[in-house]
Computed example of a mutant assay.
Amino acid sequence: MAAKKVLIVYAHQSTGSFNAAAKDAAVEVLAGQGCKVAVSDLYAMKFKATATAKNITGEVKNADHFRYAEETKLAWEEGKLCDFTEEQRKLTEADLIIFQFPMYWFTVPAIMKGWIDRVLTLGYAYSEEKRYSQGIFKDKKAMLSFTTGSHESMFSADGINGDTNVTLWPLQNGILHYCGFQVMAPQLFWAPSHIPSEERSTMLEGWRTRLQGVLGEKPLSFTPMDCFDGEKVFQLKPEVHERNATKEYAVGTHLGKALPPNNQMKAGV
């Protein structure tokens, strides 16, 4: 069996950070299992975050009304994308992608959002026909691994920051699942800067333990595309409504029912 390839997209400016330690642990443990691990250290790379016409070599199709998605699709097809094609190559080769970052304003840092905006181009990472459960990357796994500035209790259903499952939906469903990835349960490191060093060490050991079997984990569950009508409006089919009518949580955020507990945090809920 060929060695699994892992890409870690890493965004932190300090080599002494907890995120750096989590990244290093992942490299060590996964490489120790025979995986081939590549790291995209975005700050060290001075990765350009802005998605503009400068990402394309030569003329664009419509300079007066520049549309990034359409123009980069054409550029990708014609081999005219600029400095991030190496990132696409690494992503294409990877079996598992780990995004390692500190949560900024309830999402990823700007430099990582720039990686997402620029690398996951139309045509390469998704299309109207190939997205969600039918997505281009449906044979790849992806997961978020991140630190928070707030304690876990603040991210609870009745906490001041709101339910973590809601916070994670745009990232895990709207980006990763949208591109077809099998989304693994996230690795959350709650407020490492506000806890004793012993607890941080325990967190890292838990991460190391999880990494031993992460490639065999079951991914999170999302509603398949064939449950939707496919008539451009993409509403749930009537038979799906009927099948889930008596269920307490049904299919997650659909049908006006309550969000299943931990549906963005653990597999099999």
Rank of each mutant, 00 (worst) to 15 (best):
V233D: 15
H65Y: 12
R131D: 02
N165M: 00
L211C: 14
E70M: 11
K90T: 04
A11F: 12
L259W: 04
L30Y: 03
G174N: 10
A21N: 08
A44F: 02
C227H: 15
P192R: 07
I8W: 01
L96I: 05
T148L: 06
E231F: 12
V166M: 11
T85W: 05
C82P: 08
Q172P: 02
F146E: 09
P186F: 10
L188R: 10
T72F: 09
Q182S: 09
T72R: 05
L188H: 04
I8G: 04
F66E: 07
R118F: 09
C82M: 13
D229H: 03
K247F: 00
E128H: 06
K138S: 14
T85P: 03
G34R: 12
N244C: 06
E129F: 04
A21I: 05
I56Y: 06
S14V: 08
V166S: 04
V27E: 09
H177F: 15
V9Y: 00
R200P: 07
Y249G: 03
L188Q: 12
E239R: 01
F234Q: 08
D24N: 15
E59S: 09
Q235K: 10
R208Q: 15
A110T: 15
D83L: 06
F47A: 10
D64M: 11
M265S: 00
F84R: 01
A44C: 00
F137W: 05
S197M: 14
E242I: 04
N19A: 11
L220I: 09
G213Q: 14
Q187D: 14
W169M: 07
G180M: 07
T85D: 02
S221T: 12
T50F: 12
T253K: 11
E198P: 01
N165C: 04
G252N: 02
A267V: 05
P238Q: 09
K138T: 09
K113N: 09
E87R: 02
L30N: 02
T57F: 03
L42T: 03
P261Y: 11
A3G: 00
P196A: 10
P192C: 14
M103Q: 10
L176K: 07
V29D: 01
K5F: 01
A125P: 06
D158R: 11
G252V: 01
Q212H: 09
Y104C: 00
G135D: 08
T246R: 08
F18S: 07
A142H: 11
S127Q: 10
G135L: 04
S201I: 11
K36A: 09
G32C: 13
I195D: 07
F99P: 00
P192Y: 08
T253C: 01
R210C: 05
S201L: 12
L30R: 06
V6T: 14
M45W: 04
D24R: 05
V27M: 04
E198A: 15
A11V: 11
A142T: 05
L81A: 11
